[in-house]
Design a binder for these strands. Structure first.
Lengths: 186, 186
DNA sequence: ACACATACGGATGAACTATCCGTTTTGGGG
DNA sequence: CCCCAAAACGGATAGTTCATCCGTATGTGT
């Protein structure tokens, strides 16, 4: 395996950077569009990222990784309930801050391998925190591991429906999560 | 104003029926596609419904109307909290049952006049029920009128993320709503 | 410097959207 | 019953966006 050519690496970075910009300004990601803005040929972009989703995944991955490691820290927290709540808060905050995150989170299993992987990892951490909280009798029994990610996506979605301007989102999301957490507490 | 010709009326019905089928089977709505399936010319479909969204709106309207009148009935309920809860339950059940409903609910203000109208009506009913429940001291103060629709959309979204098969959706949605309601109760 | 692998670019075809206008159908008046 | 103007139909076609393919250019080890 040859290491990869310099120009290829440079273009890869450039494409991801341009995509990040587009995502941040809310423009729907279109590969031909990315190519034009990056001053590259369409073929180049498509070779690096066969689909829009693949590019989106790459853009979102750093943020997802951050969330995954966040979960590990949470395990060290003293109060099991607080640890669980803090964990969920971080996830929701990430989702309402980064539009790319919502999109990849909603993607079906297996289409985005890296994302699927990281989601599993996050879910693993969530499970541990949930189990601890449940053992401590802090959380209701009817909440399942598999509910965590969907519920966080739901709150993020509700937040996007509620507020047009990005500035309003964080407080709204926190308020919604608080309400949900109140309902989850035993 | 001339009453409209019979063939036009017949085709209109037919188009809506075909669209309903497509929506139900999860196929993304495409007007050319609708035309082919209905055995009509593309032009005919476009004349009746200038955009995909317009057709979707027509498909979703009966269901939205049902929800709107549901709210009115709810006003007659004895217990203010129960009335409010029952109202939200109906909305969520509608959203997870009918894919069309989710899509039009998410549409921006003003693009779908009829939908915007009905949403306002539903929100009006929701406001009244919320006000009553609040007066009775049954619901927390930090919930605003404008939060109702987003939260219901959020629950529907969470439900779609959670379960692939339509059969699982209704129980999941009910469970999520229960949790939320517990968190809303004063 | 050479040659070969690797990567680039954009012309190009496929898929879909939406319009326009010549033809057909409808239904009220003669 | 027939006529004809208004109304509606159908589908060819122009405009977009998506994705591929291959001739050309560029980087890299010898």
């Amino acid at each position: 395996m040859t290491p990869q050519r310099k120009d290829a690496a440079r273009n890869w970075e450039h494409i991801v950077a341009v995509a990040r910009e587009l995502v941040d300004e809310g423009t729907p990601l279109q590969l031909n569009d990315v190519a034009r803005r990056a001053g590259l040929g369409v073929g180049t972009v498509y070779r690096h990222f066969p689909t829009t989703e693949a590019l989106l995944e790459t853009v979102a991955t750093p943020c997802l990784e951050a969330l995954a490691s966040q979960g590990e820290q949470g395990l060290a927290h003293d109060d099991p309930w607080e640890a669980f709540a803090a964990f969920l808060t971080k996830i929701v905050e990430g989702q309402v801050t980064d539009p790319a995150l919502v999109k990849v989170s909603a993607a079906a299993q297996d289409v985005l391998p890296r994302t699927t992987d990281l989601k599993k990892q996050i879910m693993g951490n969530g499970s541990k925190l949930l189990a601890k909280a449940r053992e401590a009798g802090a959380v209701r029994a009817d909440l399942d591991d598999a509910d965590i990610v969907p519920l966080m996506c739901g709150i993020a979605y509700a937040t996007y429906v509620h507020s047009g301007s990005p500035a309003d989102r964080l407080p709204t999301a926190r308020r919604y999560l608080e309400t949900l957490l109140r309902g989850l507490r035993a």
